[in-house]
Structures are given as C-alpha cells and as structure tokens.
C-alpha cells in the first residue's frame, strides 16, 4: 500500500444565482402555457396572465443574471469552461428574447399573443433548454477543486 498523495482542496459552494434563475425559467414556462391557452380560448384573462408571468420572469431573471456575474467573480461558478460559457450566453439570449416578447405582450388583445407572442415564448424556452442542457455541467457538477 502506497502513501496517498496529499493535496490541499477547497469545497466550492453552489452558485448564488441558481434559485432565482429557476424561478425565472418557471415563469417563462408558465408564459408558454398561458399563451397557448389564450390562443385556444381567446379569453383575455390568459393574455393578462402571460404578461404578468413574462414581467415577473424578466425582473427575477435580470436579478439572477447580476448574481451570476457575482458568482463568477467570487469563484462560485466552478469549472468555467466552454460549456459554462454556452450556458451563460444561452440564458442571456433567452432573457433578451423574453424582453422583446414582453413588448409584444404589451399590445392590446389578440395580437399581443398571436402569432408573435407565441413564437417568442417558444423561442425563449428552446434557447433556455438548449443552453441549460449543454451547460448543465458547469453548475451542477460537484468537484473538489485543487488549490494551485
């Protein structure tokens, strides 16, 4: 039995931005659902729900984006590599699409959702899902970081 090689290590805490970001993504998923419901019923209440969900998602999403930057600088984003860049950029693009979607959703009645609102709600989700899947490792993989 050989002696183990001893290295000093640091346990990295999870990123600060994650809980808030999950909240934002849940809002964008909700927007998609209420958009579809409005498309199928023309009941204005659902368009109003979409507008609120989008606004909430945007506000919380922007706060999460700021926290993500904080995480980067205080070293809570572990394993910053190509994948985590995809993750962060993907989420950023999703937020930008959601912003334009909020403008579309500020129109009055039917065309606040159909067709552009629906398309942008779906585009937001597609971008978020792709970015999320590809960059997942950046935030979920727990490593022992070697202090150099």
């Amino acid at each position: 039995m050989t002696d183990p090689i001893m290295y000093p290590v640091r346990l990295v805490k999870p990123p600060l931005f994650l809980p808030l970001w999950h909240f934002a993504v849940a809002c964008f998923i909700g927007t998609m659902i209420t958009d579809i419901t409005y498309f199928r019923t023309a009941e204005i209440m659902w368009a109003d729900f979409s507008a609120w969900l989008l606004t909430a998602g945007l506000v919380v999403g922007v706060v999460a984006a700021i926290l993500c930057l904080v995480d980067f600088f205080i070293g809570r984003l572990v394993g910053v590599n190509r994948l985590s860049v995809v993750y962060v950029l993907g989420n950023g693009v999703g937020l930008v699409i959601a912003f334009f979607n909020a403008l579309i959703h500020s129109r009055d009645a039917w065309t606040s959702v159909v067709p552009m609102g629906l398309v942008l709600s779906a585009a937001t989700l597609v971008v978020l899902i792709l970015g999320g899947v590809m960059g997942r490792a950046a935030v979920y993989r727990r490593d022992l970081g070697v202090v150099e």
């Binding site: 009941e43 204005i44 209440m45 368009a47 009055d108 009645a109 606040s112």
Partner: peptide, 8 residues
C-alpha cells in the same frame, strides 16, 4: 371600455 377589447 378599452382601446380594442383588451378588457374582454
């Protein structure tokens, strides 16, 4: 009661 029926 609206601009263009946005209140239903």
């Amino acid at each position: 009661n609206s601009n263009i029926t946005e209140n239903g």
